[in-house]
């Protein structure tokens, strides 16, 4: 891939614009989620400033919401364990993107993982084979969008609570977006097998504690995709 010509400054600017354009529809559903989080911080026994700082420090919505809503009702150890299980999928994200970091400078290897959230992973998983400069600029622009939107949303939630009516059911929007991203990534038969098995096994293991059904389903999907790939070969 490094054999390909390095992109020009103008091309990289176009890459960043494309990254922002791709990220905005994914960031829109994050707004109501941030509102919910901000509102939960106000309601929680956790000091507001600590709750708000969970956004830059943890930078993972589902884990933050779990930590903030569990604060005061269970032990800190149980809160830590829950957050770890919820975030364990990021290990798989990091491993899956690692080939794209082969040609990246050290500062980017250290900085990029801060923003390795679901949305950024979903967008960048389709760009692992891009030129390293293109990958880095796309990553940076996309990460900047999510970083900004997430903090604005948390602050608005803290300030105004739940101003979006419950009846709009905006909580459904992320499911649509991630479905779209799964579909766009289905470029090979093993990917289809991985998605179907991942969703199916996750569904039957929904009852497992701390949303660990997500991990069980994900692992089953990866293994099934591997088996499908061997069967094809």
């Amino acid at each position: 891939m490094t054999a390909a010509l390095a992109p020009t400054t103008e091309e990289l600017a176009a890459v960043r614009r494309k990254a922002v354009a791709d990220s905005i529809p994914l960031a829109i559903p994050a707004l109501p989620f941030g509102f919910v989080l901000g509102f939960a911080i106000v309601e929680s026994v956790m000091p507001n400033i600590a709750g708000f700082l969970s956004s830059p420090i943890i930078m993972a919505g589902a884990a933050q919401l779990a930590v903030i809503t569990l604060a005061g009702s269970v032990s800190v150890w149980a809160i830590m364990a829950t957050a770890m299980v919820i975030n364990l999928r990021h290990v798989m994200y990091s491993a899956a993107l690692s080939p794209a970091f082969k040609a990246q400078p050290r500062w980017f290897r250290l900085l990029a993982p801060i923003m390795l959230i679901d949305q950024v992973f979903a967008l960048l998983a389709q760009r692992v084979d891009d030129h390293p400069d293109t990958f880095r600029h796309y990553y940076g622009a996309s990460a900047a969008v999510f970083f900004t939107v997430w903090h604005i949303a948390t602050i608005l939630g803290l300030a105004f609570g739940s101003v979006i009516p419950e009846s709009w059911q905006l909580g459904y929007a992320p499911a649509v977006m991630f479905t779209g991203l799964v579909v766009m990534g289905l470029d090979r038969r093993p990917a289809v097998v991985a998605a179907v098995v991942g969703a199916g096994v996750c569904f039957v293991s929904l009852g497992l504690p701390n949303r660990s059904g997500l991990l069980v389903g994900a692992l089953a999907g990866v293994i099934a995709g591997l088996v499908a790939d061997r069967a094809n070969a």
Partner: peptide
Amino acid sequence: NVAPAVLAALVV
């Protein structure tokens, strides 16, 4: 296969 498997499970 990580992306399709995890993201599909995430939707569920």
